[in-house]
Amino acid sequence: MSPALLRIENLKKHFPVRLGAFGEKAATVYALDDASFDILEGETLSLVGESGCGKSTTGFAILNLHRPTAGRVIYKGENIAVFDEARMRPIRRDLQIVFQDPYSTLNPRMTIGEAVGEPILFHKLCSKAELPGRIERLLADVGLPGRFAQRYPHELSGGQRQRVALARALACEPKFIVCDEAISALDVSIQAQIINLLLDLQEKYGLTYLFIAHDLAVVRHISDRVGVMYLGRLAELGTREQVFADPLHPYTKALMSAVPEADPAGERTRQRQILEGDVPSPLDPPSGCRFHTRCPIAMEKCRSSVPEWRDTGAGHFVACHAVP
């Protein structure tokens, strides 16, 4: 197994909010609680779960874009979770992010060349004379012709903009990229192009990805390991085979069962396990195991005590009282 590039220990992010018509009530959103896992060099680790489960918060907290409430993020022997912006700056070269919406992440007044060149100039990675050549190489890397450097974002399609966002992330030769729903806004035929591009770039530059997504079919296709989150906590984490072929947590099982398959005959006869009810509010998460209000096999213990996050063997982690 590859060594860990990033080590995440008991990472927490709580957001204070004010409720009521006049903001008179203080409350806390428990967006992420006690997440511990390693991100291995060169792997694609995916985080899946439903909206509000804390998967994007996890990505933001690792990059210190949201300052963690507690816990550690170890990168090159140092806990970057406590770094201020000035100390983070050189590290941001290594740790990049691509967002979901390619329409709002590019500055509409900057040409594609300016957008891609900005991080290079900021980190002083090359001279002004070398810059155009470097931008052209980056655009070629993401499959765009060099003449696109003179264009503006509104002249590009969604898929092309997402390629630009990737080129921008690649500009300062990062080791690690968080892909935060980076393909979710794209049409199916374009989505496949971007997935293939991500895989090509990983091979070429030895990149490590934290891939945040809700589309399980895509996750299954590209991941080495998968983490499943529910309401701010990790429910299960393991290799793709462990999580997809042998899911342990009842929530993972329900999630897999809800994914539709492009197979009409199979779909008609398939026995689905349909979860009842909705995800509870992260403002007031259930006591004990946060899944117990919807869990088909919840026991008395699940209501009172938080299940321990443990390795069941061979790196297959789970947090569930019912798993032996």
């Binding site: 035929s189 496949a192 997935i195 895989l199 296709h221 492009a262 197979d263």
Partner: peptide, 13 residues
């Protein structure tokens, strides 16, 4: 271009 859950792993879609 749909990644399929049951299909054998292929590197590229």
């Amino acid at each position: 271009s749909i990644p399929r859950m049951g299909a054998p792993d292929s590197a590229r879609l």
